[in-house]
């Protein structure tokens, strides 16, 4: 399932594609099941959102090879906090992409991610 333009959409992105503001679709079926009467953005979907932003940015399909560390400091309720910001740093090393990302709103950090992706087919 591709989440972009369904589970979330991009509201704004800066010129060098390092800062995104996105809007979560609180009506999405995922939120009916996670959890009934209590919508919380699944941690795995935050990883997928970052993956899709990076893949679009690189214009190539990628595969999540390694999670160095992902920390969820605060759960994201899509009704209370539909708009979130994602900052991204992507660096290439030996054909792989190290990605650091932070999901935040103003001073509140929800998630910090440090992950390594490989182009699909070379995983």
């Amino acid at each position: 399932m591709r989440l972009k333009d369904d589970f979330f959409r991009i509201l704004n992105v800066n010129a060098d594609a390092t800062e995104y503001s996105i809007r979560l679709n609180s009506e999405h079926s995922i939120y009916h099941d996670h959890f009934p009467e209590n919508p919380i953005t699944p941690g795995v979907c935050i990883i997928q959102i970052v993956k899709e932003l990076v893949a679009d940015n690189l214009a190539c399909p990628i595969f999540l090879q390694k999670i160095a560390k992902v920390r969820y400091f605060k759960a994201i309720n899509p009704v209370e906090t539909p708009e979130i910001n994602v900052s991204l740093t992507v660096s290439e090393q030996s054909g792989k992409y190290n990605v650091s990302a932070t999901v935040f709103v103003n001073e509140t950090v929800f998630t910090q991610l440090s992950m390594c992706f490989a182009p699909t087919g070379e995983g």
């Binding site: 209590n38 090879q65 390694k66 999670i67 160095a68 992902v70 969820y72 995983g123």
Partner: peptide, 13 residues
């Protein structure tokens, strides 16, 4: 209700 708090050194082959 439980949520993921952290994922660390996780490798997917």
């Amino acid at each position: 209700i439980g949520v993921i708090g952290e994922i660390k050194n996780l490798v997917i082959k």
